[in-house]
Design a protein around this nucleic acid. Structure first.
Length: 631
RNA sequence: GGCCCCGUAGCUCAGCUGGAUAGAGCAACUGCCUUCUAAGCAGUAGGUCACACGUUCGAAUCGUGUCGGGGUCACCA
């Protein structure tokens, strides 16, 4: 309808009012509830042009539109706002179109280019936590939203499975794991621990021991015992110690931290880990075997968590395969002159013209950095999927700068697709107690949280649910659906870009703006609709204010899906579904449905129910949330 | 310090391509289940949209500055 009005205005304005208008001047909004009308045209921009008062201009434009568009029943003018009343027949037609469209709001599947969505991308020595939940739910939802917009989607993650930090847990396990009666060190099998948790435990163990050793090193240094330490470290230590003179407490603490870092690097443990990394890079069979074994434990553990989270991936990348990629890209860049070399042979790109700084792409010794690998991986992926049009990286906003630089480099190197690479940058999840910090043990574990939320859903559902006739298995899956749905909704309803507060109590609430609130509405609708024996035509039905309100909302759904893809924001879907449910609950409470005597009216209401249910189901599925038929 | 993000009700968040009297939920208080699922609905109360200036017929929304919070500025990933 808005498109139609716009077209009419553009086509007729000049001939009618003798002045030209710009498309941007045509602004619509939904008519506010207190006025009569459906859509409102803002006439201030025109009144100036037409050299008449806003009210006068609005009346003239209103006449023009009413004359040209049959569905416009009437209009009224309040200040500079032209409120347009659209005929009931238009809304009823709108509803029957929605009703006939099984995939209402969705573009034809696979009608658009492939988009790759990367999310999760965990580090293999830390179990997944609350931050990963936001990441995974966001990434999964954005992938679904792209699909709804007609794109083919490849969901992927890159697993950070190599580097010194991985060797830490390997070494710690070899060195510190107790040995049982059978002569075995701890394994997921003999301890019953989830693999990722076991490996995570040894990563922590490494850190503990490293700290102990580092303290010993510092104690030696403080006694001026410098034998066996690298000259560099000793010199730095002396420099930092000297710098502590006359400094305030804070500055001293900073210096002490630096000394600690130095000392860590001088411990035997650190040297052994570095040695292990060298062995890994040399493909030493024993090291590789250990690495593979421990990684497989982690993947098993992660697999369980992903299953619980109900997220999945179409393809996986491992850093151990990709970390050497990008070096040849650097070569090309050097040839084309985009990159340059410094005296020490290191390779850089100069981004100062873009307001950024110089960025290193290859170390002097020829080894690559993170950026090198990311460049290589991106290019590789576009080769692998030739019909791919863009990529979305779901990564926390602390890496905003990194991605800005990455996309810029790709662009400078002439990859046109760099324009359609996006960083789905999301804010940190805070706890009421403040930031999550692994060192302070305030990290919320993903498995524990999901279990907790499902347990709570079970309690609440047993208390107030409608579970008659459900088997135990059906009940269990309902508890999961409600618990997980609540958690996902809680994390997705907030604008991804923003840092958010995670309140454990609120996350399992079921009243107000929550997942279960929406799920409940769906269950109600289902029971209502299944009760109807047959639903016929609503020809001749009376369109009341409640009915119209809902049809209007429903008709916005396609635009919301498009907007959500454009903004990379599942929150838009969540908020839309919430608005729809609120409007529906009002409708449900104020209008009789089965008791309605007029058959056409009853049918109209039932068909509205069916389509609200359909859109709830559809919208929630875009968020990765299931809705129940009973609860 | 440079750059980036954020600041809306007691709390958690919408609204931000400028538009009418700034909206929800939670928490508090009042009502509504012998008609369809009360995990619901209706209502009361709660605001200097951090602050200042500017642009505009019109600013929570755009610009500049100030204050406050966070992030980032590694030959780490």
């Amino acid at each position: 309808m808005e498109q139609q009005i716009k077209a009419i205005l553009l086509a007729n304005f000049e001939s009618t009012f003798q002045c030209a208008i710009d498309e941007k001047m045509i602004q619509f909004q939904l008519t506010r509830k207190e006025f009569e009308g459906d859509i409102t045209l803002v006439v201030f921009p025109f009144s100036k042009l037409m050299k008449s008062s806003p009210i006068d201009a609005a009346n003239k434009i209103g006449e023009l539109l009413k004359d040209k568009i049959a569905e416009i029943e009437s209009f009224n003018v309040v200040q500079g706002f032209l409120n347009i009343v659209i005929a009931p027949s238009y809304w009823l037609k709108e509803l029957s179109e929605i009703n006939q469209d099984e995939r209402f709001g969705f573009e034809t599947a696979n009608s658009k280019a492939t988009i790759m969505v990367e999310y999760s991308s965990p580090n293999t020595n830390k179990p997944l936590h609350l931050g990963h939940l936001r990441n995974n739910f966001l990434g999964y939802a954005v992938a679904e939203i792209y699909k709804a917009n007609g794109h083919k989607v490849v969901k992927t993650q890159i697993i950070n499975d190599r580097g010194i930090h991985i060797c830490k847990s390997m070494l710690a396990w070899e060195r510190f794991s107790p040995v049982n009666a059978q002569g075995e060190r701890e394994t997921p099998t003999n301890t019953g621990l989830k693999g990722d948790k076991l490996v995570g435990k040894y990563y922590v163990e490494f850190d503990k021991n490293l700290n102990v050793e580092a303290k010993e090193v510092i104690a030696k240094w403080d006694k001026q015992a410098f034998d066996g330490f690298s000259e560099n470290a000793v010199a730095e230590y002396k420099k930092f110690t000297a710098a502590k003179e006359d400094k305030d407490e804070k500055a001293i603490a900073t210096l002490d931290d630096k000394i600690k870092e130095l000392a860590k690097n001088e411990t035997a443990l650190m040297k052994d880990v570095k040695q292990m990394l060298v062995q890994w890079e040399a493909r030493d069979p024993q090291t590789i075997e250990l690495w593979k074994m421990m990684n497989s434990w982690v993947y098993d553990g992660f697999g369980v968590t992903y299953e619980k989270m109900q997220v999945d991936f179409d393809t996986l990348y491992y850093e151990s395969d990709t970390y050497l990629l990008g070096k040849n890209v650097v070569e090309e860049g050097l040839k084309s002159g985009v990159l340059f070399k410094k005296e020490d042979n290191s390779v850089w790109i100069d981004l100062t013209a873009e307001g950024l700084d110089e960025k290193l792409l290859l170390r002097g010794d020829g080894t690559s950095v993170y950026m090198t690998q990311d460049l290589g991986t991106a290019i590789e992926r576009f080769k692998e999927f030739p019909d791919m049009e863009g990529m979305v990286y779901t990564v926390g906003n602390e890496q905003d700068y990194h991605f800005k630089v990455l996309f810029l480099i790709l662009k400078k190197m002439g990859y046109s697709w760099a324009e359609s690479c996006y960083h789905l940058s999301y804010g940190m999840v805070d706890l009421p107690s403040g930031k999550m910090k692994s060192r302070e043990g305030t990290v919320v574990d993903a498995d524990d949280l999901i279990d907790e939320v499902v347990e709570k859903a079970k309690e609440m559902t047993n208390e107030r649910g409608h579970l008659e006739g459900m088997s135990e298995a059906e009940k269990e899956s309902l508890f999961k659906l409600i618990g997980l749905g609540g958690l996902k909704y809680y994390l997705l309803k907030v604008d991804p870009k923003k840092r958010m507060m995670f309140n454990p109590e609120e996350s399992i609430e079921l009243t107000g703006n929550t997942g279960p609130f929406i799920q409940y509405a769906h269950a109600r609708i289902h029971s209502l609709v299944t009760r109807a024996e047959s639903i016929g035509s609503f020809e001749g039905a009376n369109l009341g204010a409640e009915e119209k309100e809902i049809i209007k909302l429903l008709s916005q759904y396609p635009a919301v899906i498009q907007e959500a893809a454009k903004e990379l924001s599942p929150a838009l879907i969540a908020n839309f579904v919430y608005e729809l449910v609120k409007a529906f609950n009002h409708f449900y409470q104020s209008v009789p449905i089965h008791i309605e005597e007029n058959l056409a009216n009853k049918n109209l209401r039932l068909i509205i129910c069916i389509n609200v249910g359909k859109v709830i189901n559809s919208g929630m599925s875009l968020l990765g949330i299931d809705v129940p038929e009973k609860m």
